[in-house]
Amino acid sequence: MSQTNKAIQQKSTNSNAKGVKVLLISLGVIFIFIMLVIPMIAVITYAFQDGLKAYQEAIFDPYTIKALQLTLLATVTAVAINTVFGLFAAWTITKFKFRGKQLLTTLIDIPFAISPVIAGLVLVLTFGKIGWAYDFLNAYDIKIVFAVPGIILATVFVTFPFISRELIPVLSAQGTDEEEAAALMGAGGFNIFRKVTLPHIKWALLYGIVLCTARAMGEFGAVSVISGHLRGKTNTLPLHVEILYNDFQLTSAFAVASILVILAVIILILRNLIEYKAKKAGEK
């Protein structure tokens, strides 16, 4: 009797667990569908609603091309700078013991915590006409605010933590034994980095670069404040989308937006590829 009772109980807990599983999965799917899939489809359909010709016109508009070029330039430069600094920061934090290490780790995370608009304002306040660095910059004829360097600076600021955040856990899990072993055999710092550290962090580094690229391309807030919206000069793709949208050129706005969507999809595919490869390398 009690045996069957137990069996029934077991069955009911099993079906309970199954119910929870189904519920959670469907909740997740519905959420992603409403929040991500439908808007993406909307962007693409809107972009093509006036036909292929209107889409082509919007895409090959000289201002759009300029904006795309600027976005790519800002992204590549910011990612390059952040790769170097991210590596340095992660290396410093994980391989050395020093006072204020915790503070440094927190400081690196500041861009995550601060709203990008404020980041843009800070840059304007520092390098703009009312900023303390203005006289110096003016003397050497360097323009930062309302110019390309400003856009790059803003992008660097906002995407700063991505690469170091990916590297720190991997580097601290590895410890310092292998580097110490190499140093004891008389190897120099660069040789140790290239032969011992880099193979270990390769996939995490690539992953960080991909995330950083995605974030850099989409950056709006900080760039918006510092760019001045000069068409063909300091307009990035996201800013260009906003201008078109505000001019009620909806088709063009969505067509340009679709470029960003396509770039994002490419990056997502790259991301998955890297994850797959990294997993395989880990299993070997």
């Binding site: 034994d177 292998e178 110490e180 072993a181 190499a182 140093a183 004891l184 055999m185 032969k195």
Partner: peptide, 15 residues
Amino acid sequence: GKRGIGFVFQNYALF
């Protein structure tokens, strides 16, 4: 690196 010492680590620290 210049002391001419061979060191075997506790968990070997092989590359």
